[in-house]
Amino acid sequence: MNYNWNWGIFWEMNPEGSGTYLTLLLMGLRWTLATAALAAIIALTFGAIVGVIRTLPARWAVLAGDAWVEFFRNIPLLVQLFLWYFVVPELLPKAAGLWLKTLPNSSFWTGAIGIGLFMSSRVAEQVKAGIRSLPRGQAMAGTALGLTTAQTYRYVILPMAFRIILPPLTSELLNTVKNTSVALTIGLMELTARTRAMQEYSFQVFEAFTAATLIYLALNASLTFLMRRLEKAVAVPGYVAGK
């Protein structure tokens, strides 16, 4: 291969005047973290609500939950972000659309919300699976004790269900982090976008992508480590997810 390696490139000044190329990548990492954090919160909130709804006795609730999951799960994330960013503002009344278009950091808000809702469908699916994996007797025991449906979920079902699905939720969290890179298509200057900018400016493509690979790897490895700690901390001794 005819390639001019230059690992010192990270300490050279970037042409945007914001410091070195390393600074450029770290600025991207900040957006990746912010987007992933907001998206994860949205995914967990909506995922938990929709997941629970889908196990309720009420038929209309189950249908609504199913519709949510199918809608967000069956459309590619890239297309969803395009819809949120380019199409939705055109469908709104003119003033509202204009407000949305001129919102500062609109690609961040659109990206985080879009990725969050996309991931919520996956979280919902797992919450549902977690609840379904519990013996039916647990809910019946709750009813027998005189608990309302809400109380049964709050005190009996959800505490166990969430413990069971912690490992797959970790995977979803990592997916959320990785999916933030799709937001570069709507102009969010996150880590992958910055990496591509670096290769355009310097033509040192392999160095740039090696750095991005290592940063993503380190970020996700630390998240996995933290989630393992969390799993241990909340484990119920002697039961399903416990030891």
Binding site: P15, E16, G17, L184, M189, A197, Q199, E200, Y201
Partner: peptide, 11 residues
């Protein structure tokens, strides 16, 4: 993103 034009614009 990542073009020389972007750089000139920022400058």
């Amino acid at each position: 993103a990542g073009t020389t034009n972007m750089k000139q614009l920022v400058e």
